[in-house]
């Protein structure tokens, strides 16, 4: 079953001389429960696509059907609700709230979604950081911060986890650890994961690999034998 049906979306930034076509007629389907990797170089439009999928930005044209509902027609208020109920974000630069401890960062997510607080503890346990829950982001390593960021994203039990280069700022070992967590969540909780990266090697862990260039999809390939994160090197 398709979680996303994306039909011919475009995204244009600026106008006149500064006009940039970030997405240029992108169409694709994302199946529920899959681990999808969007692969492309800088400026290929992958982050723009992720933002639009997550309701963080609006497409200039085209439509996105999420779970049978056209989200391109939603106003800002409804998009906020859409994000709250369905989407978990993981960013390259973690984007934790510096004034809150690890646990509070995660609890904030459950609080916004009006879910029980225990979800935050469980999420921290899933990413293996229960013992670091009372530390502030500044007291955590990059890998720990990213795992807290994942815990924050999954605590509200989203339908889809959108990850923008989650290993981009991490060393190899920590990167593998983070990918393992994401893979586990995808498999054990059946949460759809869309991960963007420019690394061909990371793409090897995906069920589906979507290659992008200049705002267009070059190909969408199903990977019959995805590797385990521990098996890839970059």
């Amino acid at each position: 079953m398709n979680l996303y049906e994306i039909n011919n979306i475009t995204k244009i930034y600026g106008d006149g001389e500064t006009k940039v076509n970030a997405l240029n007629g992108v169409s694709l389907n994302i199946e529920e429960g899959k681990f999808v990797v969007v692969l492309g170089a800088s400026g290929s439009g992958k982050s723009t696509l992720l933002n639009i999928l997550g309701g963080m930005d609006n497409a200039t044209s085209g439509e996105i059907i999420f779970n049978g509902k056209n989200i391109t027609e939603l106003d800002q208020r409804k998009l906020t609700r859409f994000r709250k109920e369905n989407i978990g974000f993981v960013f390259q630069s973690y984007n934790l709230l510096p004034n809150l401890t690890a646990l509070e960062n995660v609890e904030f997510s459950t609080e916004i979604s009006k879910l029980p607080k225990q979800g935050a503890d469980n999420a921290l346990a899933i990413v293996g950081l229960s013992q670091r829950k009372n530390h502030y982001p500044a007291e955590l390593s990059g890998g720990e911060q990213q795992r807290i960021s994942i815990a924050r994203a999954i605590a509200k039990k989203p339908k889809v986890l959108l990850c923008d280069e989650p290993t981009g700022a991490l060393d190899y070992k920590t990167g593998i650890m983070v990918l393992n967590v994401l893979r586990d969540i995808n498999k054990k909780q059946e949460t759809t994961v869309v991960l963007i990266t420019h690394s061909q090697d990371i793409a090897k862990i995906a069920d589906v690999v979507i290659k992008m260039r200049s705002g267009q999809i070059l190909e969408a390939v199903t990977n019959p034998t995805p590797l385990m994160p521990d098996e890839v090197e970059w």
Partner: peptide, 16 residues
């Protein structure tokens, strides 16, 4: 600005 973006991404409404 970025913190506001994070809060919005997490689904916190404008009003909140």
């Amino acid at each position: 600005r970025k913190q506001i973006g994070i809060l919005k991404a997490m689904g916190l409404s404008n009003i909140k």
